[in-house]
Design a protein around this nucleic acid. Structure first.
Lengths: 226, 226
DNA sequence: TTTAAATGTTACATTTTTGTTACAAACTAA
DNA sequence: TTAGTTTGTAACAAAAATGTAACATTTAAA
């Protein structure tokens, strides 16, 4: 699970509890204790979902939600409203203001988590593309493509995995053993010299004229990107 | 407000109440009192949303929902679960099975209405057109037809599901395992080699002269549209 | 400068993966 | 039923990827 969640809620204890648990679940979380600041920071933070308290010192959650639905840049932001108001008419008012889901306090974190997942599943069906980039090199894990200087490069499977591995920590130097462990299927035995050959093939593939060499050899240590 | 809603619920009094009120609100409604019939009629009816009871004489609502999420032709159908089970763990189990929202009986019609609107607001913008398109390829899910370059193409059932699956995320590369999971009926075992043959058949079918190949082979990874 | 170790480069046999065809079994509609 | 589709798999062909050996070059230390 990954994604960014923003919280607008004036009670610090709730923020703390929710934020801590969300982070434990792999989310990146930011928050604000009032409506006006919240709206501003929200736009900077670009969350995938908003947890919104109804009762706030300045704006009400309802007003905030209506604002969001009118603002083209964040119009489709999924919102879950958290509130002590459990009356039927409150729920209806809340949902009618454009909220995606509605949860009455006190709530269990597990139910909140389940609802967050349900809402994200619906609104974020296409996982965001996760590309690995370094200088003018781009590796698209979804489409399995690699570009240098915006032009596509054809790599063999091992070259691809090798490059993918390096791109996670570009400048880090990896020993041949580390490369073997991470790039080759488990329990397979190849000589360490084999790596050199694949490095050579990868070099050949990603090299283009008038561009600097991207793979650095560190004598007696291994290789890294640079 | 318009749209089609299907109800699977074994208690006639609830069906009657909900159906009547929904129709008063401009929805077209159809229903079924058990799971197996419900699933079949559902596909014919092509609703925009499903109201699903948890406890049914044959299948449970949870099972139905899981079935829906695995069936490519109705995978994205929004589901609201109606149930007497109000315990926290039930809610979580329900939401985790792929349900979009969860409402405990007894509920007011107005709250149901508000939740229906909230779910439709979220899910409908993406589902506007039931056609999947990519370049000059068009797949009509309602009429089950496929066109290339505006001319109709005849596909076998598996070819159709395969193409439908690829068209949801055209450029994404899928492994044979992923394809198997999503395109073949559940709990069926076919060899991964079988996919290759169906890919070949699909290629043959959608290929026309002077047009580029649409299916890309990514060696040791799988296939994608391109 | 000399020497040994490390790394670069190339070629090639082997293995793996994929394409293609054919065929029998399962399924469907008339 | 029967005739026609659809489906899964086997078998072989073709293509691509892989590992290793052999030799060349570079590097760093003596």
């Amino acid at each position: 699970m990954n994604g960014k969640i923003f919280i607008i809620e004036d009670e610090p204890s709730i923020i703390q509890l929710v934020q801590h648990n969300l982070e434990k679940n792999g989310f990146i979380v930011s928050s604000s204790v009032n409506g006006n600041d919240g709206l501003k920071e929200l736009k900077k933070f670009q969350p995938d979902l908003l947890l919104l308290d109804w009762m706030l010192p300045d704006l009400s959650g309802i007003e905030i939600c209506k604002n969001i639905r009118k603002d083209t840049s964040i119009k489709n932001l999924p919102v879950i409203m958290l509130t002590a108001k459990g009356e039927e008419e409150d729920k209806i008012k809340g949902l009618d203001s454009g909220v995606d889901d509605y949860l009455t306090k006190p709530f269990s974190f597990n139910e909140l988590m389940a609802r967050i997942k349900a809402v994200l599943r619906r609104s974020n069906p296409n996982t965001v593309s996760d590309n690995l980039e370094f200088e003018d090199l781009v590796l698209d894990r979804i489409e399995k493509r690699v570009y240098r200087d915006k032009k596509e490069i054809q790599l063999g499977p091992t070259e691809f995995r090798l490059l993918e591995f390096f791109l996670v920590n570009p400048k880090r130097v990896y020993s041949r053993d580390q490369i073997l462990e991470n790039v080759w299927p488990n329990n397979i035995n190849v000589e360490s010299r084999t790596i050199d050959v694949h490095i050579r093939r990868l070099r050949k593939s990603i090299n283009i004229q008038n561009k600097k060499e991207l793979i650095r050899t560190v004598r007696s240590s291994g290789y890294s990107l640079i």
